[in-house]
Write a protein that binds this DNA or RNA. Structure first.
Lengths: 209, 209
DNA sequence: GTGTTCATACCACGAACGGGGTATTGAAAA
DNA sequence: TTTTCAATACCCCGTTCGTGGTATGAACAC
């Protein structure tokens, strides 16, 4: 394999320690080279424009934009961009959104380096790859209705310990409407009460605390 | 500074990527050397016995034991062991426990490497060090009563969406007693209702979801 | 243009929750 | 030994929650 055929990788992560680890792993592969790094979403977009890497490793959680937004921005400009989401586990909502938005693979930060570089090679070859444990998570809630934006908004207020009456005042709607939203939320999440709804929503990554 | 005075560091982390980053950072310091690594609690204890490092970097969350338990085991055998907890943020309960159990410092994985190596030097010199943002977290709830074991147990059932009646049956106590526990939980956490109690408890690391 | 989804709103009712108080027991600490 | 605290238990009572049903207007898709 000639030098000029090395896989050119861009890494985007705001954890310096992780970046360092990724750099070491990538550069220890004979067929890869890390051409640039970024530690924020806007920087990622700039670096992509500059280098147009073969594969981009992107953290989901970044200081400015979310990794998904950064990916969308890049893919709007470069629709063929091959981006791998690399993150600590964050519930299946974000995973689903990332794959919808065109991520070629979704990897966890605790995976062995061998698997990570393997996936980079596959993605560069045009394949997609989602590890089984994540695919299982996705399949688990495939048919589930997603919460609407309004429902998520209500859910956050619920998590704040607000009564229906208070939420109604905060959102300038009637208490009855809040009750309808809460009911729909519980139905969709399969929760027995509002408390479990919060627990489930946090696990799925629908809301953060 | 002579070669024999290098700070001998043991790193314990089950994330290979992180371990790699730590190794790179440590070994790039002229006054430090990474003498061994472990990826589990029991392995950490063995490695400590073998090498008796000057400073140990320990992840809080490990496959077998918790980082705190591993630290306690090591410090029982080697009371002067200098151990730094290095972790992604996990609520202040674990931080507090780690410092109680004798951790010399508590660092976050997203800190710049310069700060990490700096703290390693200070700890080796016998100092303790907790970064301001963490110290603030600790001070925030200093006077707070901690939840009792029973209360935490009840809290978990609450998070599962159980009614007081159900929790009573699960724990073989009366519903009235459950209500007393729930009331105490809400009082101690400063929660307006059981739902907010879950939100607060998760944020503080009292329970996981 | 018809159907679907979402957000809105109201009503009624029983179940669950949260606040107040009091009290007994056992264990741990002072 | 006395005190303190945790866990247990019971009562009363007002508030909130969750469930059922029905309905309307706007937006969007087919």
């Amino acid at each position: 394999m000639g030098e000029q055929e090395k896989i050119r990788v861009l890494s985007v992560d705001d954890h310096p320690l992780l970046s360092e680890g990724i750099a070491t792993i990538i550069n220890s592969q004979p067929d890869m080279e890390l051409i640039s790094q970024a530690s924020s979403g806007t920087e990622a977009i700039q670096r992509y424009r500059e280098h147009q890497p073969d594969v981009t490793l992107m953290d989901l959680r970044l200081p400015d934009l979310s990794g998904i937004d950064a990916m969308i921005a890049i893919r709007t400009e470069f629709p063929e961009a091959r981006i791998i989401m690399l993150t600590t586990f964050e519930g299946d909502v974000e995973i689903h959104r990332a794959l919808q938005a065109g991520a070629r693979a979704y990897l966890l930060k605790n995976m062995p380096p061998s698997e990570i570089v393997d996936v980079i090679r596959q993605v560069r070859a045009g394949k997609k790859r989602v590890p089984p444990e994540i695919a299982a998570q996705l399949a688990e809630h495939m048919g589930d209705d997603e919460l609407t934006a309004r429902e998520v908004e209500v859910l956050r207020k619920v998590a704040g310990g607000n009564r229906n009456r208070d939420i109604a005042d905060l959102l300038f709607i009637s208490e009855e409407t809040v009750k309808v939203h809460v009911k729909h939320i519980m139905d969709k999440l399969g929760a027995k009460d509002r408390t479990q709804a919060i627990a489930i929503a946090v696990r799925r990554g629908i809301i953060e605390l």
